[in-house]
C-alpha cells in the first residue's frame, strides 16, 4: 500500500495547485525510495526515460519559426483568407480541421500538433473568421476558441490514430493481449474503432458547435447584406 504514496502526492499536489514540476519530481523520488529503489537507480531511470522521450520537446526548434511567421503577419493574412469564405465561424473552421485531422491520423499522418499547426494555422483562421467581420474579439472568447482548437486537435488525433494498422496503440494492445494468451486480429481491432472514431468527432463537433453558436451571437455579420464577393 505504501507504494501508492506517489499517487497521493500527485492527487493532493494538483488539487492544491502546487508547482507541477515539483509534484512530479517529489512523487517519483518518494515512490522509488519507499519501494526499495536506491537513489542512484532513481536518477538512472529518470535520466534514461527523459533522454528517450526527447522527441516530446521537438517544439523547441519549431517555435522560432512560428514566431517569425507571426511577426510577418500570419494571423492577419489568415483572417483575410477566411473573410472570403462565406459564413465561416471559429466552430466551422475547427470542425473542418477535426475531420481532416482524423482522416489523416488514420494513415498515421501528423500535421505537427498544437505547435506545428494549431497555433500557426487553425487558431489564426478561427479568430480571423470573426475579425474579418470587422469585430474585435473579446479576450474571453479568444480563450474559448484556443481551448476548442487544442481540444479538437487532441480528440481527432487520439481517436484517429487507432484506425492506423500498425499504429503504436494497436501494437501495444496486441502485445499486451498476446502476453495474456489472446491473439489479436489487427483488421478486426481497427474495425471496432471505426464507429468509436466517427462518434467521437460527431460529439466534439456538436459540443463545439453549440459553444460556437453562443459566441457568434455576439458578433453579428455586418457585411451579410452587402456581400461583395
Amino acid at each position: 500500500m505504501i507504494k501508492l504514496i506517489g499517487v497521493l502526492i500527485i492527487v493532493v499536489g494538483f488539487a492544491l495547485k502546487l508547482d507541477a514540476i515539483g509534484i512530479v519530481i517529489i512523487a517519483g523520488v518518494v515512490t522509488g525510495l519507499v519501494s526499495g529503489i536506491s537513489f542512484p537507480q532513481i536518477l538512472d531511470i529518470l535520466g534514461k526515460t527523459f533522454v528517450a522521450n526527447r522527441y516530446m520537446s521537438i517544439f523547441l526548434m519549431l517555435l522560432p519559426v512560428i514566431g517569425i511567421l507571426e511577426k510577418n503577419g500570419l494571423k492577419e493574412t489568415a483572417g483575410k483568407f477566411i473573410a472570403k469564405i462565406k459564413n465561416a465561424t471559429p466552430g466551422k473552421v475547427i470542425m473542418s480541421y477535426g475531420v481532416a485531422r482524423t482522416f489523416l491520423a488514420a494513415f498515421d499522418i501528423s500535421f505537427g500538433g498544437v505547435a506545428g499547426f494549431v497555433r500557426p494555422v487553425v487558431y489564426p483562421m478561427a479568430v480571423g473568421s470573426i475579425e474579418s467581420r470587422g469585430k474585435k474579439i473579446s479576450e474571453e472568447d479568444a480563450e474559448t476558441i484556443k481551448a476548442m482548437s487544442a481540444g479538437m486537435e487532441n480528440v481527432a488525433w487520439f481517436f484517429g490514430q487507432v484506425l492506423f494498422l500498425g499504429g503504436a496503440g494497436l501494437l501495444l494492445v496486441q502485445g499486451t493481449l498476446k502476453g495474456a494468451g489472446y491473439d489479436l486480429d489487427p483488421i478486426k481491432a481497427v474495425k471496432a474503432e471505426i464507429p468509436v472514431a466517427i462518434i467521437a468527432i460527431l460529439v466534439a463537433s456538436i459540443y463545439y458547435g453549440i459553444i460556437d453558436k453562443k459566441i457568434m451571437k455576439k458578433y453579428p455579420d455586418k457585411k451579410a447584406k452587402s456581400e461583395v464577393k
Binding site: K3, L4, S35, A52, N53, G67
Partner: peptide
C-alpha cells in the same frame, strides 16, 4: 515564445520518467 512556455515545456518528459519509476516500483 519559449520564454512564455517556460519550465512547463519539460513536464511531458518528466511525467514519462515518473511513469517509468511507477512501473519499476510496481504501483
Amino acid at each position: 515564445l519559449l520564454d512564455a512556455v517556460g519550465p512547463l515545456s519539460t513536464l511531458p518528459q518528466l511525467l514519462a520518467s515518473l511513469g517509468a519509476i511507477f512501473t519499476a516500483a510496481g504501483v
